[in-house]
């Protein structure tokens, strides 16, 4: 155990008499850094390196969340990572989180089976502006696993379909076998009031869908650029090209929302790791209205 040598014993041994101050010492505040145990109820393998956990709290109320928020998911003794909530915001009984195994903690999480327990902190961050964009056409542009944090927004919009104009969902993936949430995409695409387009960067002839970068889909998607609000999530370069393509088609930057990714550690705005200019991405993001970050977005290594 890499326990620090000088912890408990020395500090606790120091006798601590009095002086009572005028302010009573803070009662044990529930610590923002303490994970809450959740049981894994179901594990779904989505694509080769991505899987979805359905979680239920061991005790206490379910975790209500808003579309676009994330949690810090903890594997006992191993570590903690920021993971998007990908479930239905109207059905929070089960916390649904989609994870791409790319680092030591997420790779260790691939071994999770039903019955295992993980820790959860959160939910954190600013959500997609689902209520604010009511009445508008909605264009959702997702790249790769970027579809995961958008799924709650899509479910929210489709559950209140009448509140929105045209809805277009544009997805990019690396290859056909990397397409996330295929069943959802088929279901949403089957609706008469929703347009779904998927494109992949590379494919062999067995694939009958589209090939090419996701930005290609923007020119033909059915939405009114003067009316639409766009929700964009994916790798940062995909966001860059997508914002450009949306803007080229006439969607103004103040109607484009993007979800940013930075190194999230504390998730409550004091560890400093996720800073992006004057913002803590964990607290002021991850969803930003693009016109508010456009200047910073263009600065390299910021």
């Amino acid at each position: 155990m890499r326990m620090a040598p000088a912890d408990a014993a020395t500090a606790a041994a120091r006798p601590m008499p009095e002086p009572r101050q005028e302010t009573a010492p803070a009662a044990r505040t529930p610590d923002l850094m303490a994970p809450r145990p959740f049981t894994v109820e179901r594990v779904t393998r989505d694509v080769s390196d991505t899987f979805t956990l359905e979680l239920r709290p061991l005790e206490g109320p379910p975790l209500a969340f808003q579309p676009g928020q994330f949690t810090m998911l903890y594997l006992f003794g191993v570590g903690e990572v920021a993971i998007s909530v990908s479930g239905d915001p109207d059905r929070p009984e089960r916390l649904v989180q989609t994870i791409r195994a790319v680092g030591p903690v997420t790779r260790a999480m691939t071994a999770l089976k039903p019955g295992a327990v993980v820790g959860v902190r959160g939910p954190f961050g600013r959500p997609w502006p689902c209520a604010e964009i009511e009445g508008r056409d909605v264009v959702v542009v997702a790249g790769g696993v970027g579809l995961a944090p958008l799924r709650p927004a899509i479910l929210h919009v489709l559950a209140r379909r009448g509140q929105y104009g045209k809805v277009a969902l544009l997805c990019g993936a690396r290859t056909p076998k990397d397409i996330l949430f295929r069943r959802d995409l088929r279901r949403w695409g089957g609706r008469l009031d929703t347009s779904v387009a998927v494109t992949v960067d590379r494919a062999s002839a067995g694939w009958h869908g589209q090939v090419g970068v996701v930005t290609k889909l923007i020119g033909h998607a059915p939405f009114d650029p003067e009316e639409a609000a766009a929700l964009v999530c994916g790798p940062e370069i995909m966001i860059r090209y997508t914002v450009q393509a949306l803007n080229d088609r006439g969607v103004s930057l103040d109607r484009i929302y993007v979800s940013m990714e930075r190194n999230m550690k504390c998730a409550v705005g004091f560890c400093g790791h996720c800073q992006f200019g004057g913002s803590f991405v964990c607290r002021d993001g991850p969803v930003f209205r693009f016109d508010r970050i456009a200047d910073r977005f263009a600065v390299r290594e910021l």
Partner: peptide
């Protein structure tokens, strides 16, 4: 004030 969050465990 920037800090790292480090998870540790016994062997």
């Amino acid at each position: 004030f920037c800090s790292e969050v480090e998870d540790r465990s016994s062997l």
